[in-house]
Amino acid sequence: MNAAASNAATPQTCLFEAVGLQKEFDDGRVQALRGVDLRISEGEFVSIIGPSGCGKTTLLQMLGALDHPSSGELKYRGKSMLHGLDAATYRAREIGFIFQAFHLLPTFTAVENVQLPMLETTTKASERRERAASLLKSVGLEHRTDHFPAKLSGGERQRVAIARSLANQPSVLLADEPTGNLDSENAVMILELLIRIHREQKMTLILVTHDLSIARQASRMIEMKDGRVINDLRGALRP
């Protein structure tokens, strides 16, 4: 569903609802999530912060239907993500992923990387190409469309990855340490780009980081420790 359209109709729709969410690995020897209760509304910009191993990336995996919780309930727009959603369709149409290591495919050019998610949703090759080019233009990379990832700088690669995450007009952007592999100048640029997209397209942005200064850019900051939410701050967070 298009974020802008749905947001205009019901600006405060509950997008995600987690109740007692738990995730165990290694036959229960590792407990990544120990009962997370959470509600995220449509159009929010939420940062999730915490030290390494606190469960923030695991929570992001659950929200993106990359993995199943061991117990508890997780709903998207009121539907159970375990039983009511087709994970592949959900990932293709509702979610845009941005990774710390960019994860562009090296054998495809920038414009081809952006087209990859569209193979599941857009039949016409010309439409895919056109939309990918327009997305690259929107992130300021119209001059780099036919470059392979190896020929792009870190900041440019992440901008291609952001364009790819927007390929199917998702409702939610899930960003896992999106500035973690960038220098400070590029980190600021990427963060500004994400905030701009969130504002202009009224898109829900959930950003995982361990950097407090980045987390404070969000309108809501969830702090995690040992697999639990220990703080949920809303409002103006900038120091």
Partner: peptide, 16 residues
Amino acid sequence: KQEICILLAIGWRRRR
């Protein structure tokens, strides 16, 4: 492996 996982993460079906 990781590339395939990325394709799955961005919405590719297992069939594809």
